[in-house]
Design a protein around this nucleic acid. Structure first.
Lengths: 628, 628
DNA sequence: GCCGACACGTGAGAC
DNA sequence: TGTCTCACGTGTCGG
């Protein structure tokens, strides 16, 4: 595949600034999380050279785009989700798989703004504000008005969302982990359900006012949604997730309703159950230990493939090796060094190893400003550091964690553009101090960042446009244009179809209502169908299901109303459960259809109860989206 | 509005070349008009300063995008349109309004390829080929293999489309003009209807095999569609036009069916009725006379607004004034000068006055290669020249007309990159011949064109993405991304709604079908569904299907391999066909599954053959992955 | 060696 | 004033 690589960066920092500002300052609604909020993500692999190869698969999650998708998912959903988080999976050097913060979008609770604080005490509130204030002060200098921040209340869910950034789940731990390992969505609705969960995080969510939490595995991670409202499972959400997060691999079309217990086939996978959540808070963060073993600093040991662009990276590493060391060394300072108040984030600090070359005058460590990169060869695997202080609800360690690279960037920036007092360690190496004039050098940097930003956008676009033929920028744009046109077209067609159907329906309704005989039945049917429109699958009352499992064979007998093609539903269900129909017979008596099927279990073995539950949930669901 | 201006260019010429090639050469199907075909357009105003202001309204039609939209409109339409043309409106200095060629997309007649020539005589065919050959020779050098062009037949509609490029309509003349003036769509269906039209063009269309012609006013012009098939009016098309050509102003939502006569409120508007069409063919084209009075050459007389960017234009004009003159002077040569054989079109010749500055080394007249610009301050209003030879079906005047700026571009190009024999007039002004070395100069030019192309794409993207906030490139990209996501979302929602409605409808139909009176609607619906079903037709070999229809009941027997859940497929198929299962039985013998089903037909009545085809296509389809 | 695509540094306009 | 965006010419890489 000879495609051009676009550097995969996360975000441009002007949006960062707005995020911080939006969250901190009082004149913005603190409940509306700006679209670009994010925090360091976990990377997909600790070895950057491996990640480089991965980055050439064009389906990689890219942060910006991720944010957009989360945004779209939440805002266009019928249900009122409070937040969405994408937990990004990664493989540690130890071989463990881990889910860490990928990106998140916080919408907030709509009607809670007035009677804001329901559960949290004033002390807790003070604590939160304090943390945020410290965080804010760390990033102060972003805007002049940042000092008067955090006088706004911090809602429970807001806080829950915030601290989520620090969490991670190893090897199937917790709700996201379970969903990921089982490759099956988990839907917890109802406070009791949440409260009784085995997942500490879920219980905490319940404490913070959540009533619904959902985890949907999707591609390289897990999508988590939470709501303070009670939201029942619907295929609608699944469809949306499939559309927005279609990573070609995972099929989430049909899924039995599951609790977070059960259905995890191999219990041994859950190794370190909740150990993360029980890690001590306030643990000092020493990134030094963690970043050291990362191969990134040892280019000679990671010559896996002779990828030409990889040579760039290595070359880049050679040049910047020492800077990395110093950065990592200084890294533990963040959040504890009160001198960093004066640090300033310049817009557009972007981690930029994805770019191929730099000319000699610019061996800059252009770090990603807001989030650790989760998707490019440049990512530094700070994630291993993120694991440690997870679930830190107090002290600035937790919150500050999300800002580490930001701070790093600001450190670098302060070196390059401002004259900072001498440090113990030779921090200043990042930039050649003298290159003649100083002003154009900054300009150069700014321009570089602008280019970077643009490229970032390009890559994001690349991710949402299917079938981009030539990886070429121009072709990409052209394809995007045609794609948009096609989408408009399809949408238009779909909606005119919808209209036609609706009118057809209306006329039919008019007819049907004239019939005296059916007038009793029609309203019910309509009702039921309207529910279908709302995508809530409720059981029709008069369905009885009998399942008998005998060894590898099973017998299923269902009696139900003949409407809505129960035979099709049952057969599709069996197909999805991977049950091979051995014999089947359906008969209709008046309005009742009786189906009797014998199946052979294929690769999967279900218990009688599992089978019964799966079939009954699936079959009584009016609408299955499995076929299309 | 403080937005950055993107240069509004029409097309990049590599696509041009492919267009010419695709149309000319024999190894490409000549019926498939490449997506980038186009021809000189009329401008929206003769005064460039006015146009400049217009160009800052972001809704301006841009050629490339126009082409895309036409493409989309045709290809995604249910009906089988043969071509689509957008007639761009413009205001002459005389105050007259005029519709001229904006852009066109030719799809062709699908099944006519074999028995291609139906009406045109061999002489006519020769004539067409000759014209095309001359045209081809004019542009020869584009590709090495361009010499053996035009041995393919030129179909009637192809020719009709081609000569349309030369036509224009003043003040409500002709079908497009009437539609434009009346702001109402005109739909002519049926040969008689066309033949009896007052519009010469329409009658000619009928002669060339069209059965349907439609003109829909849209924004700054009129969209014309034609088809060799009989297509009855539908709101579907109108909707599509509204979506694709939504210029915010014109509402074409509901409209009475109208002929081309009548409904023009002010008959006086139709001033020069058909005078254009009756202009003598073969009239020599003297652009000199026409281009002279155009204000464009007289910047001092057009100081309407003190737009800063306008200063650029004027400055630009000052610099290039003389070139324009020479160009226009030389213009009449095109198509008659056999010496121009050796001219070459290099890719990416773009009319480029929209760009603000050029450094001193590049006072180039970068002309638009294929089409005259219809939308930017740089447009030359060649349209006034185009009027004259309109409806010229013979002589190369008609066809060559569409290539004038192309030729101009090639002239310029030949000057810049190749050493051409000395011309009578000082053509060479376009480029400073010496700037030191020669090789990097070409590189510079290439790079410039590449940038131009990119900008062009950007602008096109800008046109299809609504609500682009900041005109900034990066923001544009970001907005495009969110827009795509939103579209996907909406589409998904719409389709699930559609599905829900459909099922609702199905269930209701089940009820209503008991009323015998309402089977009149069925055939159309059925047809539609069968088309959908016939979309894919790969049958697996060892499936045998037996269908017997007896009145309202039908019996289906299928024997096939038990793999891939044939029962589920059959049941889903029956569900989709709205067949109510009365009884079914499936049994497996070794690898063979035998299914036997009796169904009752609901609202739809199928013939035995219909049912058999529908079921077999559907059931033998392994997986229907309609989306993506 | 030519061509296309890209990133880069740079000067300049806009706010 | 700085900040941001842009177009331009150039060096360079890969096909």
């Amino acid at each position: 595949m000879t495609e051009y690589r676009y550097p995969l960066m996360d975000l441009w920092t002007d949006d960062n600034a707005s995020m911080v500002e939006g969250f901190m300052s009082s004149n913005h609604s603190p409940l509306t999380w700006p679209p670009s909020s994010s925090a360091p993500a976990t990377n997909t692999a600790a070895d950057p050279t491996k990640t480089l190869n991965q980055s050439q698969s064009s389906l990689l999650l890219n942060q910006e785009n991720l944010q957009q998708r989360l945004h779209t998912l939440i805002e266009f959903s019928r249900e009122n989700w409070t937040y969405a988080i994408f937990w990004q999976s990664s493989v540690q050097t130890s071989g463990d798989s881990m889910l860490g913060w990928g990106d998140g979008y916080y919408k907030g609770e709509e009607h809670k703004r007035i009677q804001k604080m329901t559960s949290s005490s004033a002390a807790e509130q003070d604590h939160r504000k304090k943390v945020l204030r410290e965080l804010s002060s760390l990033i102060s200098g972003v805007r002049a008005s940042a000092d008067d921040a955090v006088d706004e209340e911090v809602t429970d869910t807001e806080w829950f969302f915030l601290v989520s950034m620090t969490q991670s789940f190893i090897n199937g731990v917790g709700l996201p982990g379970q969903a990921f390992v089982a490759s099956a969505p988990l839907w917890l609705a109802g406070s009791e359900r949440l409260a009784s969960s085995s997942c500490e995080r879920v219980r905490q969510g319940q404490v913070f006012g959540l009533q619904t939490m959902v985890c949907v595995p999707s591609g390289s991670g897990v999508l988590e949604l939470g709501s303070t409202e009670l939201i029942l499972p619907s295929s609608d959400l699944m469809d949306k997730v499939r559309v927005l997060f279609n990573f070609s691999s995972i099929e989430i079309g049909s899924w039995p309703l599951q609790t977070d217990q059960g259905l995890i086939s191999d219990p041994s996978v859950v190794r370190i159950r909740e150990s993360v959540d029980r890690a001590p808070a306030n643990a000092p963060i020493n990134f030094q230990e963690i970043s050291k073993p990362i191969q990134f600093e040892n280019p000679s040991s990671s010559s896996l493939t002779e990828n030409p662009s990889r040579n760039y990276i290595q070359h880049q590493q050679q040049k910047e090796k020492q800077s990395f060391l110093t950065r990592d060394l200084n890294f533990s300072k963040f959040g504890f060094d009160s001198n960093s108040h004066s640090l300033k984030i310049e817009s557009g600090e972007i981690l930029n190893f994805g770019e191929s070359r730099r000319n000699s005058s610019s061996n800059i460590i252009s770090t990603n400003s807001q989030r650790g990169s989760s998707n490019e060869e440049g990512m530094l695997s700070f994630t291993s550091g993120v694991i440690l202080p997870s679930a830190v609800v107090k002290s600035n360690g937790g919150a500050g964690d999300s800002e580490n690279s930001d701070l790093e960037a600001s450190v670098r920036e302060s070196e390059s553009s401002r004259v900072v007092g001498p440090e113990k360690r030779p921090r200043k190496r990042g930039r050649k101090p003298a290159n003649g004039r100083e002003e154009p050098l900054n300009h150069v940097e700014a321009e570089r960042q602008r280019r970077e930003k643009l490229n970032q956008r390009f890559y994001s676009l690349r991710a949402v446009v299917p079938n981009v033929s030539k990886m070429d920028k121009a072709s990409l744009l052209a394809d995007a244009i045609t794609y948009i046109n096609e989408l408009n077209m399809k949408l238009q067609t779909a909606e005119s179809d919808k209209e036609a159907l609706q009118s057809q329906l209306d006329s039919l309704k008019g007819l049907a209502s004239k019939e005296s005989q059916y007038s009793g039945l029609v309203p019910r049917l309509l009702d039921q169908n309207l529910k279908v429109l709302n995508h809530h699958g409720n059981k029709s009352p008069e369905t009885d299901i009998e399942v008998k499992v005998m060894g590898l064979e099973a017998m299923i007998r269902i009696g139900c109303n003949k409407k809505n093609h129960p035979a099709a539903r049952l057969m599709v269900t069996l197909k999805e459960l991977d049950l091979e129909v051995h014999h089947a017979s359906m008969s209709v008596v008046k309005d009742l259809m009786i189906q009797q099927v014998t199946v052979k279990m294929g690769r999967r073995n279900y218990t009688q109860e599992q089978l019964r539950v799966a079939i009954s949930t699936k079959v009584t669901e009016p609408q299955s989206v499995s076929n299309r």
